[in-house]
Write a protein that binds this DNA or RNA. Structure first.
Lengths: 178, 178
DNA sequence: TGACAAACGGAATCTTAGCTCCGTATGCTG
DNA sequence: CAGCATACGGAGCTAAGATTCCGTTTGTCA
């Protein structure tokens, strides 16, 4: 499956079964003996990857500063998908129906990240209505920069702007829009 | 071509030539007499749409408050792609090579939006390093919310967070990350 | 009305990629 | 070593969708 991962990283779901098999040095038949359909193979890879997200989040939880902990999960997660087109798509589309069978991994991730967010909220380090759903939304946005504008845009800058946007509103100092 | 637009809105580039022809009430041959390839048809539609962006931006330029002008271009542009899958992809991928032949439309858009941004920067209403490239990057992010997380996430909230993140840094009041 | 041109329709073709199937190779057991 | 089981390889099947091509229709001019 590691050869599948390499091609998935380069080509995304477009990666072709023939090539995956060839790269792995086996026949197509053998691939299909392990995974009944292409989709099953993709799902297996995505599931593995989501497990990594949970691990990343768990590590980030050690960060002392509450706000920096939030920023760290986001940055590390983004770094994890950098250069991996298939993974980028999985991250952006993780809320879509098309990925069945990764519910468990997502649940673990959600639990950890929710804790990190709650801590930041309680500390007044981020806007108090910030949620895990927002986290997914923002990660999707950051990832879209990598996927759709590789080279021409800098996702770290995108992240910086978002993190800044998560600060709690400061009355008076920053007037709301008209 | 309007039937093409409807299907493109619903299915994106996946829209099928047969169906486009059928919907338009003509034969496939006729479609191919107007557009040599499917790609040519898609490009023509995207070009039209980018023209709309330029118009939207031009209208937004009338907004008095400099920061609100920026927010308005973003919001109106996002509203323009709402419910139009093909257009969403075009917006996100506008910097990709795959869209040849829309350079002119993009140039007009860039000119207008750049003026709006400059005015906001000069007024100190947004961070002073905000550029047109950032604008494209952020729009891509907002659009990805619509495209990848329809129903489960709210792009207006995404926009609000980003607009907040574009504010110039306030020293002391908001400590930087560790 | 007849002859020619322009535009049309859609069946047939071509290509790509997922998947199946069967003959073969490998390995285990008595 | 013979017999059986398990796993393999990859040619070929099938479906889907873009594109082509030619017989037909429609429109124009004398």
């Amino acid at each position: 499956m590691s050869s599948g991962r390499e091609l998935f990283a380069r080509d995304g779901p477009e990666a072709q079964m023939d090539e995956i098999a060839a790269r792995a040095g086996v026949g197509i038949g053998t691939v299909y003996r392990h995974f009944p359909t292409k989709e099953a193979l993709l799902t297996a890879m995505v599931r593995d990857r989501f497990q990594e997200f949970a691990e990343i989040a768990t590590l980030a939880e050690d960060t002392i500063d509450p706000r920096y902990a939030v920023e760290t999960v986001m940055r590390r997660s983004a770094e994890a998908v950098e250069g991996d087109v298939g993974f980028q798509l999985a991250m952006m589309g993780s809320n879509q129906l098309e990925w069945e069978g990764i519910e468990e991994q997502k649940a673990v991730l959600a639990a950890v990240v929710t804790r990190i967010i709650r801590r930041a909220v309680d500390a007044g380090a981020v806007r108090d209505d910030f949620t895990f759903e927002d986290f997914g939304m923002m990660m999707c946005g950051i990832t879209s920069t990598m996927y759709y504008q590789p080279g021409s845009a800098d996702w770290r800058r995108h992240l910086a702007i978002i993190v800044r946007g998560l600060c709690p509103p400061v009355r008076d100092a920053e007037p709301e829009s008209v």
